[in-house]
Design a protein around this nucleic acid. Structure first.
Lengths: 121, 121
DNA sequence: TAGTTAATTAACCAATTGGTGAAATAATGG
DNA sequence: CCATTATTTCACCAATTGGTTAATTAACTA
């Protein structure tokens, strides 16, 4: 795999890990906090491994505080992903415009007044 | 894995597959078009497999045209990813604001006049 | 010091992934 | 029909992934 973006995408390709990120977006949490919602489904070592995957992808940083290992989101890695996908935004906005244009030909006036997507600029 | 978002992220976690998406963002391409840049590094069956991964993640649709199998980007799957990451945008913009605020305390006037990020609205 | 809580490490396992070469299928063109 | 081009399927392999249980380390607390 090697490259940073691949590692990040791979880390995101698991619902447990995405749930952990969602939890961390609410604020710092240590390992057992992150584990709690999953301890019925999997063991603590499994949690440790998931966190390690997030950590080595740069999505999470882990520090030491007494026995605890508080974890925090690292926004940079997420922004990398957002930047990558941003290149494609034009693509689906285009396709929305095509749809919009089509809808106008089918039933003018009745279509998309101000719903989503107000095309900035 | 099961869930659609995980499958999509997994498909994106490979530089070969991301390069194929980049190629497809320029327009339709059949299998051998997509293969060309990689045939020094891997075989055609490997390419077929990569495309199948993209296909079953919903990132690409493949049709039939004579012997050829033209592939196209499917914007929906990409938008799903963009929507997911959008929830976290506030997070790194916040951290930019914190940095900005800090820079002002360190060296007022000299900092970030209008560079990036003009905070829409 | 002994006990408890927090977290990690080690050794293992099954399933998945990313690749291969060889053979098969599909469609076109002479 | 035969040869060629495009693509896939098959059977295999090594490495990685996601999980396990048991043991270990680390730090607090009584």
């Amino acid at each position: 795999m090697a490259d940073s973006l691949s590692q990040t995408f791979a880390a995101l390709a698991d619902p447990t890990r995405r749930a952990m990120l969602a939890r961390l977006s609410q604020g710092e949490a240590n390992v057992s906090d992150l584990a709690k919602p999953f301890l019925k489904e999997m063991s603590l070592p499994a949690i440790t491994k998931h966190i390690k995957v997030l950590e080595s992808a740069g999505l999470v940083t882990k520090t030491k505080e007494a026995q605890y290992r508080p974890c925090r989101l690292n926004e940079e890695a997420l922004r990398e992903v957002a930047d990558w996908i941003e290149h494609y935004r034009v693509f689906w906005e285009e396709s929305f415009d095509r749809l919009e244009a089509y809808l106008k030909t089918v039933s003018p006036r009745k279509s998309t007044k101000g719903k989503r997507h107000a095309h900035k600029k």
